[in-house]
């Protein structure tokens, strides 16, 4: 842990203390935020680090959710195994879909990720016997030993912390550095002897794996899995979290997830126009703070330091 990371300790301690507040609402919200933080950080491995815009990331999240729930309920596989398997299903889907997508660039890449995610969504929607179709797959239980909101919260916290730790290791590794050179200039990266498409594919697979773990966590948290999990608005929402929080910083997407979910919770109790408000927030942000919330704060901080 480096010196700049001191701020993680109080945050972690606060997260550990959330259930002691006695508020079911905060435990619920915190679980939600943790799960989407993991999802957004996974997406950001592609977006902020590799420079690839996936417009269909809900597919991997949804695949993880369905895989974990179905393996537990239909195949009676114990939770830990189902959970890891869900990640592997996400990785496999990312391998297959990514194989085609990395052949395209820019907007075409984004469109193809969207197209594939819609195919996955249609499959979940139509395959009644397996997924329950549009009524969803209802009645996913907590695993026995996690059968309270508080226990599940601590489990989620542990999983998310471990996953973020691993992803952070990866982005700070030589592999992660090469991803950033691909983002900066994929053409030049090829000319330092890197098989760019292969690296993009590996990034895609890692991202798919962790997105699916987030999905698996969410399916159980939600006690049910719906095709909506992998519909395109879900992909857009996680993109918004990532951009809003700041895609050029590791924890930006975490902040984005927290802000979006908190605001949604507040605002939907007053008005049904949440998507409209979210859209406006995003538009303002893109115009005035292109680096997202964290990017803005970092700039401020360097300015303050410079003035002293």
């Amino acid at each position: 842990m480096s010196k700049q990371d001191w701020f993680l300790i109080p945050i972690f301690l606060i997260l550990c203390l959330v259930p002691l507040s006695g508020s079911r609402f905060y435990v619920f919200l915190a679980t939600d935020i943790l799960i989407f933080a993991l999802f957004a950080v996974s997406l950001n491995l592609l977006l902020g680090y590799t420079g690839l815009v996936s417009f269909g990331h809900a597919a991997y999240f949804g695949i993880g959710a369905y895989a974990c729930a179905l393996l537990m309920r239909k195949a009676s596989i114990v939770f830990p195994v189902s959970f890891v398997a869900a990640g592997l299903f996400g990785a496999l889907a990312a391998l297959i879909i990514g194989f085609f997508c990395v052949r395209l660039t820019k907007i075409y890449f984004a469109m193809l990720t969207l197209a594939f995610s819609q195919i996955v969504w249609a499959a979940a929607f139509k395959w009644n016997s397996l997924t329950g179709g549009d009524t969803g797959f209802i009645g996913v239980p907590f695993p026995q030993y996690l059968d309270s909101k508080t226990r599940y919260y601590y489990f989620t916290l542990a999983v998310v912390v471990v996953c973020l730790f691993i992803i952070r290791k990866v982005v700070n590794s030589p592999f992660g550095r090469i991803l950033t050179t691909i983002r900066e200039n994929s053409e030049r990266t090829e000319f330092i002897g890197i098989n760019v498409k292969f690296f993009q594919l590996v990034a895609f697979i890692i991202s798919g794996f962790f997105s699916a773990l987030a999905g698996a966590l969410f399916g159980i948290f939600n006690h049910s899995v719906f095709p909506d999990f992998l519909f395109w608005p879900a992909s857009a929402e996680v993109l918004i979290m990532t951009i809003l929080g700041g895609m050029y910083s590791f924890f930006g997407p975490v902040v984005g997830a927290a802000v979006v979910l908190f605001l949604r919770m507040q605002i939907t109790s007053y008005t049904q126009y949440w998507p409209l408000i979210l859209g406006m927030i995003l538009a303002v942000l893109l115009f005035f703070f292109p680096g997202g919330i964290v990017g803005f704060l970092q700039n401020r901080l360097t300015l303050l330091r410079g003035n002293r």
Binding site: S173, P174, F175, G176, R177, I178, T181, I192, I194
Partner: peptide
């Protein structure tokens, strides 16, 4: 450094701090 990583075959390393 990125050029060196690639040249020395270290680019596919996931866990060493770069």
């Amino acid at each position: 450094q990125a050029a060196l990583l690639a040249y020395r075959g270290k680019s596919f390393n996931f866990f060493t701090p770069v």
